[in-house]
């Protein structure tokens, strides 16, 4: 994941991401989704700056206890 770039590069990145996800990547949809996608990229960049150390995710797979 790259940091948020220019509007143009974010647009192209969004187009590729939509195609990979099997979602309509028309210019109309890209215009609709671009602000939210830029928010997604900004959030990703902020999380990437954090040192999460050895913190494990809150969702951990647990094997069911034997009966």
């Amino acid at each position: 994941m790259t940091a948020p770039g220019t509007n143009g590069s974010a647009k192209e990145q969004l187009r590729q991401a939509l195609i990979a996800a099997g979602i309509d990547a028309s210019d109309e949809r890209i215009a609709q989704l671009l602000p939210a996608y830029q928010g997604l990229l900004a959030g990703a960049a902020r999380i990437a700056q954090l040192d999460l150390g050895e913190t494990e995710p809150a969702v951990i797979y647990r094997l069911p206890s034997p009966e």
């Binding site: 996800a21 996608y37 997604l40 990437a48």
Partner: peptide
């Protein structure tokens, strides 16, 4: 929903790590 489909797995997992904090 369409935006949700674009989150990278790493961002989801790191969000779950933040959630623990």
């Amino acid at each position: 929903l369409e935006t949700g489909a674009l989150y990278p797995a790493t961002q989801y997992i790191n969000a779950q790590r933040l959630r623990r904090i």
